[in-house]
């Protein structure tokens, strides 16, 4: 693969995971005017632009082999985040957004660390069961999504339907965002330079996880 092509792949993948994701007045305006479909759209937008969720999933995809694995782990993540997204929103349970985002940042750090063999190198032990960890982190990511959803003025009518539609949007957005990520990773797996790519991206996940964690904790204590 030519250097130009590699750089192009980087450029393609990075913006996908770095776009903003938050609750904006524009999103609120969409929800106010669009009925249940608007919840699907905003849910999808939130996931497509949710860099922390996607960084974690990119880390998961790096580790696993084959399409069947991808389906299994993505399903575990989806079940996990659907449970907390729907449950916590319906019950009105939420956490401080900075703190939950800080924990999500740690999940990014965790995945990069694990992919780089951190458990074996540092703790001389094998890493925890990945499927279980993906499910647990799915629960945490879902709680973060729920906290974000609860920041919207949802109104009282069709409350459960709105949550479910937002969740459907999240799943659709996840599929759309993951396709290019999976494509890039699978393509690169056949290249000689995959080892360097693997290490570079997972080292980046560790750095990004630490950076995001510090940013969220700093923001929590400084009121941003």
């Amino acid at each position: 693969m030519q250097l130009k092509t590699k750089i192009l792949l980087f450029v393609l993948i990075i913006p996908i995971v770095l776009l903003a994701h938050g609750v904006s007045p524009e999103d609120q305006a969409i929800l106010n005017n669009g009925g249940l479909i608007s919840y699907i759209l905003v849910g999808a937008k939130h996931m497509v632009t949710g860099y922390d969720h996607l960084l974690f999933l990119a880390g998961v995809i790096f580790y696993i082999k084959g399409f069947r694995d991808i389906i299994t782990f993505i399903t575990a993540f989806t079940i996990g985040h659907s449970i907390t997204l729907i449950g916590a929103t319906y019950l009105g349970i939420k956490a401080d957004e900075h703190l939950i985002d800080a924990v999500i940042a740690l999940s990014v750090l965790y995945k990069g660390f694990e992919n780089l063999g951190g458990f074996e190198k540092l703790f001389k032990s094998s890493s925890p069961n990945l499927l279980m960890m993906v499910f647990i982190f799915g629960l945490i990511h879902g709680f973060g999504l729920s906290t974000r959803l609860q920041s919207f003025d949802l109104g009282q009518n069709q409350f459960l339907a709105k949550i479910i539609c937002f969740n459907i949007g999240v799943e659709l957005g996840q599929i759309v965002a993951l396709i290019p990520i999976i494509f890039v990773i699978i393509k690169w797996q056949k290249m000689k330079s995959y080892d360097a790519f693997y290490k570079a991206v997972n080292t980046y996940l560790v750095i990004a996880g630490i950076g995001l964690f510090i940013f969220q904790i700093y923001s929590f204590f400084n009121g941003h």
């Binding site: 903003a20 938050g22 609750v23 957004e97």
Partner: peptide, 11 residues
């Protein structure tokens, strides 16, 4: 971001 509930990096 404090006001928009948007605690993401773009704040």
């Amino acid at each position: 971001s404090h006001h928009t509930h948007d605690h993401s990096i773009d704040s």
